[in-house]
Design a protein around this nucleic acid. Structure first.
Lengths: 223, 223
DNA sequence: TTGTCGGCCGATCGCCGACAA
DNA sequence: TTGTCGGCGATCGGCCGACAA
């Protein structure tokens, strides 16, 4: 997976350590997520393990497009630091000195509703999408966007309505269905260095803390 | 899976040995089908192994509904018979002294075509399905049928047209889509001892030996 | 600026009898 | 008896501007 698109999908909160840097590995957190908790040999039972990053792979789930990283670690024989000591994360990778244009939008009901299109925020259309020919009436174009797997998706991009707004129509509902997107999920558009348009997905955390997206807040009775 | 429905889906060609009976196990055939060929310990390298049947489980694939059996064997310490000697299969299970009414039909193009219904052979409608009230005009009823997983499917059964014929309409195309049936696959209806209607699926062998089901034979040019 | 709605039009679904194999 | 076809009515998908938040 292209690291730029990967980071755009993961969000700015997510930082990945550089290869060769030192990190502290928390086996407890790993074990809690593993299906079959690993048994650590004696000497590994300390709550933290100082490690060096051997390799980092940027990956995406084949089914859900969710991005994740596989990080190979090797323990260092230095004495483990006390766990109460805070270890600042390695400085984020500044591989991309050129700022990459990207834009994320959380899908509204209307975006996710079947039979609807996608309302493109003006900023996204003007800075990420290929430039429209505004001399047409209405201005229309076909935009192609690559997802994390390299698959290309085709959308009809039109600028219409009163007042004028940018919309994705034909091709959008197919994308929503194939990716199984629902209101609350986010979509990421990104223009790579080579000028190529990419599209990613960031799924909402399950249940959104019980938030009911089907009912507008102003229709909720105060309890 | 209900053994009656299992046998109806498997077809009359398929016989399963009884628990406790003696069979000859052909490791070669097993190994050829296994993803990772098992390595037999020394002493098991003979081409046939006399075994006793410990248990038989009637199962169905969760995805395709295809039926199969898991048979547990234990080798007997009698000397293996020479492989050239033919071993007649154990007599088929006669657990069901009461003859079970069942009917299988290979799906035609019209049956499998989207937007179509299912043409029910008269014999099937009259002996397997619940009796229609022929005083209605046209006679209609809702029939419920359980598949191998115990899921219930709902069909509208109507007797109409000139000349009159039995059809499944509403509910049929949903069934075809969910089960991913195509022309050439077969469907099995069965009335269990308790009077319950069951439905099973028998998929056509892949490609049907290259038979082109899309072209009627009378449209084929002789070569 | 953009989220939601109702209108509307075309495509598809699916039920039907006619007809013939 | 039953497989295939064309028809046609109902439903649905999906594009649109109006309107308001």
């Amino acid at each position: 997976v292209d690291p730029q698109l990967w980071h755009a999908c993961a969000g700015s909160q997510v930082q990945v350590p550089q290869v060769g840097s030192s990190v502290i590995y928390f086996p407890q957190g790993h074990a809690e997520h593993a299906a079959s908790p690993p048994e650590f040999p004696l000497g590994f039972s300390s709550s933290t393990i100082a490690c060096r990053v051997l390799s980092v792979k940027f990956l995406a789930d084949r089914e859900t497009d969710e991005v994740y990283a596989r990080i190979a670690l090797h323990p260092e024989n230095s004495t483990p630091k006390p766990s109460s000591m805070f270890d600042p994360p390695s400085p984020p990778q500044s591989l991309n000195p050129t700022k990459i244009a990207s834009f994320a939008k959380t899908l509204t009901q209307s975006d996710a509703n079947n039979g609807g299109g996608f309302s493109v925020p003006r900023y996204c259309a003007e800075t990420i999408f290929p430039r429209l020919d505004y001399s047409e009436d209405p201005p229309v174009q076909i935009v192609l966007a690559k997802d994390v797997h390299g698959n290309v998706w085709k959308f009809r991009h039109i600028y219409r309505g009163t007042p004028r707004r940018h919309l994705l129509t034909t091709g959008w509902s197919n994308f929503v269905n194939q990716k199984k997107l629902v209101a609350g999920d986010a979509i990421v558009f990104l223009r790579s260095g080579s000028g190529e348009l990419c599209v990613g997905v960031r799924r909402s955390t399950k249940g959104m803390g019980g938030m009911d997206l089907a009912t507008p807040w102003h229709q909720l009775s105060s309890v």
